[in-house]
């Protein structure tokens, strides 16, 4: 016989053969550097947007605080820090939020209502961290001890902050499909 004995499709067919893997109650957690990346992973743009907004709001309050820019940049990298004010005319420096953390409970493969989110920061060694749960905030300078109140995120090590996209694909309009 010169033909395949059998030819079946797993995902392209209508029968959802692989969905059973999602048929459990578990948490789905992710660290995302953009709402776009979050949506691509979860297909849930409403939650991603809310999570991003909430994380951004918390970022100023929960980020480590430094007395000056140099100290902050030593921990978080050049141009990764911004000057902030706590509302009492006390000014300080803190790292910029570089991502956000989203965690949801899954029920039968569908995200349950509600989510946890937190801002995420990337230190100058490339490690990711987030404020500890119930992380202290307030007017206490934590100068010099960056990372206080922060816990590392077990992000996949093979991760790199993307600086630009769309560098491929320009020629696509000029040709038919494939060859």
């Amino acid at each position: 016989m010169k033909r395949s004995r059998t030819a079946a499709l797993l995902l392209m067919g209508t029968a959802p053969l692989l969905l059973t893997a999602c048929d459990r109650n578990e948490a789905r957690e992710g660290l995302y550097t953009s709402v776009e990346a979050c949506v691509a992973q979860t297909n849930d743009s409403s939650t991603c947007n809310q999570a991003f907004a909430k994380a951004e709001q918390e970022a100023v309050a929960t980020a480590p605080r430094f007395a000056n820019r140099e100290e902050c940049e030593a921990s978080y990298g050049k141009e990764k820090c911004a000057e902030r004010s706590d509302g009492n005319n006390h000014s300080f420096f803190g790292p910029l939020m570089t991502g956000f953390f989203l965690s949801q409970m899954m029920r039968n493969g569908v995200a349950a209502n509600g989510f946890n989110s937190a801002p995420a920061f990337r230190d100058s060694n490339g490690g990711w961290q987030r404020p500890a749960a119930g992380g202290a905030s307030g007017g206490v300078y934590r100068g010099g001890t960056a990372g206080t109140g922060m816990v590392p995120i077990n992000a996949t090590p093979n991760r790199a902050v993307t600086t630009s996209r769309s560098g491929f694909g320009r020629s696509s309009g000029s040709r038919g499909f494939g060859s």
């Binding site: 790199a160 902050v161 993307t162 600086t163 630009s164 996209r165 694909g169």
Partner: peptide, 18 residues
């Protein structure tokens, strides 16, 4: 193919920065 990203250190990334 348009979504492929490049990192500061010249590596190619997906939408989740992997």
């Amino acid at each position: 193919i348009e979504d492929i990203g490049i990192s500061e250190d010249g590596r190619f990334t997906d939408l989740d920065d992997q």
